[in-house]
Each structure stands twice: as C-alpha cells, then as structure tokens.
Design a protein around this nucleic acid. Structure first.
Lengths: 229, 229
DNA sequence: CGGAGTTTCGGAACATGTTCCTAAAGTAAG
DNA sequence: CTTACTTTAGGAACATGTTCCGAAACTCCG
C-alpha cells in the first residue's frame, strides 16, 4: 500500500523514536503487581505508572492476555528450572509437579492457563518440561500417540486443579458444606453418602492431594500403554 | 432501619408489584442464546429483550455469574439424567463421563465451572452424579477421605479438559505446531521429541482421549486405594 | 531548508458489568 | 383522602479492555 519504500533503512532506523519498550511495560507491571496487588493491574494504571497514554500500551502489547502470558513466563521461569530424574516414570511426575507448582504460584489470571497453546507460548524452560513428560512416556513404552495423550491428560488435570483451587481460595469454604452445600430444594435422602460427608467435606476438600492423584494418574496411563503395546 | 413493621403481610403482599420474574429473565436469556449467539448475551441486550431497564436485572439476579449458573443448570439438567451401572467402577466412570459431556455441551462461559462450589450450586441431577462417584469409590474399598479425593481429582481433570478444549476450539490449530509451536528463541535441539512430533502435534492434540484417560485415572486412583486399605 | 515517508503516540469513543440513589407504585392504617 | 411504609424500577455514573484515527516526531532525499 502507498508508495514503495525507496530506501529500506540504510543505516539507522526511521520514524518517530519510541518512548517505551515492551521490557519497560513488563517491569512496570511487575512493580504494580507486588506494590498494589493483582487487582490494581489495569491498562490505565499501567500506562500511568509509565507516564504514557493508555492506548500506547497496545502498540507494544497485543492485548491483556499477551501481557499476562509474558508476565507469567517471567515470574515462573526460575521455578521451572530443576534437575529431572533419570527414571522415566519419576521424570514424568517431577516435570508435571514442577509445572503445577510454578503456575500455582501465580494465582492471578488463572484463565490464561487455558488459552490456546499456552505452554507453547511460554519459554524454553516450560517446553523442556513438556519434553520431559513426552520422553518419559516414550521411554515407558508408549507410542507417540500415547505419549502425547499422556501429556495432554496430565496437563488437563494440572490446569483443572489450579483453576478450581484458586477460585476456591478466597472464600471461607471450598465447596461449602452443611447448609450451603446442597441447593435450595434437594432431597438429601437420595444423597446418603454426600449427606454423611457434609460436615467433613470442607476439611477434606481443602486437603492437597495433587501429588498422590498425579502419581495414580501417571501409573494408570503408563500401565494402560504398556498393556496395549 | 425505619419504623418496625407493624403488620407482617396479613393477607396479600405489599410494595410495588414486580414487572419481571427470574424465570422470565432466564427464558429471555435462553432465547437470546439460541437466536443471536453467546457473545450477544449482555446485560443491556437482555434487559432490552424484556423491555425493562438494565439495572432492573440486578434486582432479580445477583450478578452475571449467578445468571450463567442458572442457565447451565437448566440446559444441562436433561443430559445429567441417566441410568447408572451397578458395578462401582463403571458407576464412577459413567457418572464422570455424564458430567463431562453435559458441561462440554455448554461451551460458553467455561470459567463458570471453576467458581467456588459450582457443582453444589447445581441441582439434584448433578449432585446425584457426585454421589455416584463417591459411593462407587467407597464400594471399591476407599476410605471416605480417599473417596472425596477420587471425586475431586476426577472433577479437576474434567474441568481442565473442558476448559482447555473449549479455548482451543475456535482456533485453526490447538497448540499450533511447526513454526508457531515453539516460541521465538527456543533451541529445538534440546527438545528432540517435541521437534520430531511437531508436524503431528496438531492432529494428535485434536484427538478425543477423555474417556480413555478417565478410565486410566480411575483405575489408578482405585488401585492405590485398594492397595493402601 | 522542505517535503515525503515512516513509525510511534494518545485522546476520544464504545461496549461491557455493576453500583448508587431516587422515583414510582402498590398496601395498610388514621 | 392523606400519610406511612414497603417493595420494585431504572437513569446516571464509574471502571474496565479495546479500537479508530489523526497528530507528532523522527530520517531521508533533493
């Protein structure tokens, strides 16, 4: 469109010089995050922190989702670097646990985890753990199809655990027991076990069973693969 | 607050008569949903459909989340009614599958699934399936603690699967392979298996492996419980 | 210097969910 | 009828993410 570019930037750059960089925006976002909290990280406030116009942000960052993915990437990267066991099964579990713990430490904006190709948009440390899960599954005798399925299944479980737990965190009771547990017009006589467990539900739902269930899941997946292979 | 209520509604009701009911709002929401699509279901449009003021909605419905939970409840209820197998393991799997399929059929507003105590806010059909999972686990020799853990783990996996798949649905490729799969500056030589699978990733990630992985998960969880008990 | 080209900046505007506060519309007593 | 009380209705306003489009600031070339 328009006239052809006659000189394709011979030496220096052309155009109005930028007053802000993506790195500065990310730094300011981290500053707001730890100073004012997650809920204060808005586009206008972020622009104000940098002394620039609000819409200027959108020339350096596609949208809010883009910003948050970058932030998560920066904040979670150190935690994602760890030594992986040589044993395949242990490697799968260690990698999945590392992904879980790293992302669970960033409890704001959990919906970002479910964006399309989220792990692919992360940096090499995260992909290294994906590689570890896939390679571990392959070393356990999985076919490539099964190995990818193992990763995806473990990823789904991890995402779900984080999302549900984060959303239940602020509240006084996760899955409120007693009065509030059942809806308004529910016949509790048809739910004998739930009724019997109602008083203990809050306590039981608060327990962290991620690691145990993860092992059970991995064993189940790898066992199936070995049996069919 | 003001003078005491002298007469506590002797015969009829008092105050300005309501022009709208919660049921009418839900009906209008469903109408908009199937006529104009999910993205058109906004507070103002919903009020317009009913010919009432926008803020009037908030006297009948706490907030958007409340509306969506009610809607999901209405729409998913028929699917949640099915006969459950007598065999405990099959019962757990059938119940989890039913929950999954019912909620996956309501692909809008997936973030509602992770709200605090979501299943508890649903009606009796959904709770019946929760009861089925817990009772199945108990019948397989689980302790109450383990049974609740089984339910929660399966629920996490189900939620994660739905959320990730829904977010990947609209895009051309789930977890884009090839060029876009890896980030900008990633050393692919350190990711041999991922690189080798890059071309097939899209196809493999699109496969529906929920049922198989669910069985593996349940077997892993129940097997662990039986071994420890 | 001056116009052309190019890149960045940012104010105005829009649609969204939600809250505040006041008016409206009814019943019950005096 | 008038006054008190109660309940619902809804306009105005606010903060949010985001886009449109024109202005600003710089380089290059003649």
């Amino acid at each position: 469109m328009g006239p052809m570019t006659r000189s394709e930037a011979p030496n220096g750059r052309t155009g109005r010089p930028p007053v802000t960089s993506r790195a500065q925006i990310l730094a300011a976002a981290r500053r707001i995050l730890e100073r004012d909290g997650w809920e204060k990280l808005t586009a206008r406030r972020l622009a104000g922190e940098l002394g620039i116009g609000t819409t200027t942000l959108y020339h350096h960052i596609r949208d809010r989702e883009d910003l948050l993915v970058q932030l998560i990437n920066e904040l979670a990267e150190p935690t994602l670097r760890l030594d992986l066991p040589a044993d395949p099964r242990e490697r799968v579990i260690a990698a999945a646990t590392s992904i879980h713990d790293s992302l669970a430490a960033v409890p704001w904006a959990p919906e970002i985890l479910t964006t399309d190709g989220f792990l692919g948009r992360l940096g090499e440390p995260a992909l290294r753990l994906v590689e570890a899960i896939v390679s571990g599954a392959l070393d356990c005798g999985c076919t490539p199809e099964q190995a990818v399925a193992v990763f995806r299944s473990v990823w789904y479980y991890t995402v779900g655990e984080i999302l549900v737990r984060v959303h239940s965190a602020g509240r006084p009771a996760a899955q409120p027991p007693g009065d509030g547990f059942f809806g308004p017009d529910v016949d509790t006589s048809r739910l004998p076990h739930l009724s019997a467990l109602a008083e203990r539900w809050e306590e039981l739902a608060a327990r962290d069973t991620f690691a145990e269930a993860l092992e059970a899941f991995v064993d189940g997946l790898l066992g199936r693969a070995a049996r069919s292979g």
